[in-house]
Structure formats: C-alpha cells, structure tokens
Simulated scan of single mutants.
Amino acid sequence: MKKIILSAFMLMGLAFSTQAQEISKNALGLRLGDNDGFGGEISYQRGLSDNNRLELDLGWRNSNNVDAFKLTGIYQWVWNIDGGFNWYAGVGGGLGSWSIDNNAIDDSGTFAFVAGNLGIEYGFDEVPIQLSLDIRPELYFNSDDFRNDNFGPDIALGIRYQF
C-alpha cells in the first residue's frame, strides 16, 4: 500500500512539474515590425513570476523627414502550449515624441498611447534564444500631424537573448 501511495504522489508531482513553464528571468533583443515606420525596437523582458512578465521597448524612426521615438511598457501573462512554445497576452501603454522637418512643414510634438498585446514565442533549449511573433494594437492620443489616424496595428517579429 505504501508503494502505491508513494507512486501516486510521484505521478502527481511529475504531472504538475510538466505543466510548469519556464519563462526566463531576463531577455534582451530586438523587436522588428512596421507601424508607421517604427521598424525597430530594443526590447527587454523581465520575468516577474512563473507566468507574468514586464516588457519594455524603445522604438525609433528616422525616415521620410520624420524623426520619432516611443517608449512602450506592457504587462504580459504567459501560458505554455507545449515544450518551449508559449502564447502570451498583455496590456500597457507608452509615450513618444516626433519631429517633422521638410520644406512645407516644420513641426514637432508628443503623444501617449494605450496598447494590447497578443503573441506566440518559442524558447530554444540548446541556446538561450527566444523567437516571437506578436500583434500590438495601439490607440494614440494627442498625435496631431504625425499620424493621420489614432490607431496603429503593430505586427512584429522578436529575437531576444535570454539570461
């Protein structure tokens, strides 16, 4: 009887340990996408618990006579699909600044935005690299002449070094 009870506890422990997900404590890399020219972002993820993390991104733009940057913060919930595959969802927002300088317009300003986040990622076992694909719908406030609308669906591919 003792062997059966011990075996049952071992099987339960094995079942619970296989459900545990492994998100890294830190990840640093690039998030490459295109939302009105914000094609590149330096991306940092900080694990807060087993299934929650904070992502901070600094994006910049330097094209078509427009210089801009934006800082984004997203709180994410992470769920394991299988092995190194996870999917995640999050909410957050950010701030940015822009400047237009051409012959007809010379203007600048700031903006704020709220954002959602939905994506999938894969963390490799052999090397500490994480690949991700996500969509981040952003709703802008006080964007003036920089944007023609107040909505931007930001789709991006991320590559990060986990440590």
Rank of each mutant, 00 (worst) to 15 (best):
156 A>S: 15
152 G>A: 09
36 D>V: 10
82 D>L: 12
57 D>E: 04
128 P>K: 02
36 D>P: 04
136 R>L: 05
53 R>N: 15
138 E>G: 00
119 G>R: 00
115 A>H: 04
94 G>M: 03
106 D>K: 15
146 F>M: 15
58 L>D: 06
129 I>G: 09
133 L>V: 15
123 G>C: 04
56 L>E: 10
133 L>F: 15
150 N>F: 09
96 G>W: 08
74 I>P: 02
55 E>D: 14
75 Y>K: 08
96 G>I: 06
39 G>W: 08
83 G>K: 11
118 L>C: 06
87 W>E: 04
107 D>M: 03
60 W>P: 04
119 G>N: 01
74 I>F: 00
159 I>M: 11
142 N>F: 07
152 G>Q: 09
117 N>R: 08
128 P>Y: 01
100 I>Y: 11
79 W>K: 12
53 R>V: 04
106 D>E: 12
99 S>V: 03
149 D>W: 02
97 S>I: 01
138 E>P: 03
64 N>D: 15
135 I>D: 02
104 A>M: 13
134 D>Q: 11
113 F>Y: 14
130 Q>T: 12
105 I>N: 15
108 S>Y: 08
159 I>T: 09
63 S>H: 09
142 N>I: 00
69 F>Q: 06
106 D>P: 07
156 A>N: 11
78 V>G: 06
140 Y>I: 01
154 D>W: 11
151 F>D: 01
126 E>N: 15
52 N>W: 10
107 D>L: 08
97 S>M: 08
124 F>A: 13
93 G>L: 00
118 L>W: 04
155 I>R: 08
131 L>A: 06
118 L>D: 05
134 D>P: 04
137 P>W: 01
50 D>V: 08
53 R>A: 12
137 P>C: 01
